[in-house]
Computed example of a mutant assay.
Amino acid sequence: MPAPDFATEIAELERGLGSGVARVESEGESVTYRGVRDITKALAYFRQRVTEAPVAYPRSSTTLAAFDPD
């Protein structure tokens, strides 16, 4: 299962909130919210996850070598 894309979730929730739609679809899944309060709670949840998510940096696989002819 791939890691959730919080930015996509937030964007879809904001789009649904702005258009007054209670059903939001993201990455092939849909969720029907009961109202604005539920959508804003979901937005708060995903925004919190973004601030808690660790930043993944790619590991370096570079090896450095030096040659001294002396």
Results as ranks from 00 to 15, higher is better:
Ala7Val: 05
Ala66Leu: 09
Pro69Tyr: 08
Ser61Val: 10
Ala7Asp: 14
Glu9Thr: 00
Asp38Ala: 13
Leu43His: 04
Arg23Asn: 08
Arg47Thr: 06
Arg34Phe: 12
Ser60Trp: 02
Met1Leu: 04
Leu17Phe: 08
Ala65Met: 13
Arg37Gln: 14
Ala42Ser: 11
Glu14Val: 08
Asp70Ser: 07
Gln48Ser: 11
Leu13Trp: 01
Arg34Ile: 10
Leu43Pro: 01
Pro58Gly: 10
Glu29Trp: 12
Glu52Val: 07
Glu25Thr: 15
Pro58Glu: 09
Asp38Lys: 00
Leu13Asn: 00
Asp5Ile: 01
Arg49Ile: 05
Gly28Pro: 01
Arg15Trp: 06
Gln48Ala: 13
Tyr33Val: 10
Pro58Val: 10
Arg23Asp: 07
Val24Ser: 03
Val24Asp: 02
Pro54Gln: 09
Gly35Asn: 12
Gln48Asp: 11
Arg34Ala: 15
Ser61Gln: 10
Lys41Arg: 14
Leu17Trp: 03
Val21Gly: 02
Ala11His: 07
Glu14Asn: 11
Phe67Val: 13
Gly20Cys: 10
Gly16His: 01
Arg23Tyr: 06
Phe6Leu: 07
Ala7Asn: 13
Pro69Trp: 12
Leu64Trp: 09
Arg37Asn: 13
Ala42Pro: 02
Thr40Cys: 04
Leu13Thr: 01
Arg37Leu: 15
Tyr45Ser: 03
Thr8Val: 11
Arg34Leu: 13
Gly18Ala: 15
Ser61Pro: 00
Glu12His: 06
Ile10Asp: 00
Glu9Val: 01
Pro69Val: 13
Thr62Tyr: 09
Glu9His: 09
Thr32Arg: 13
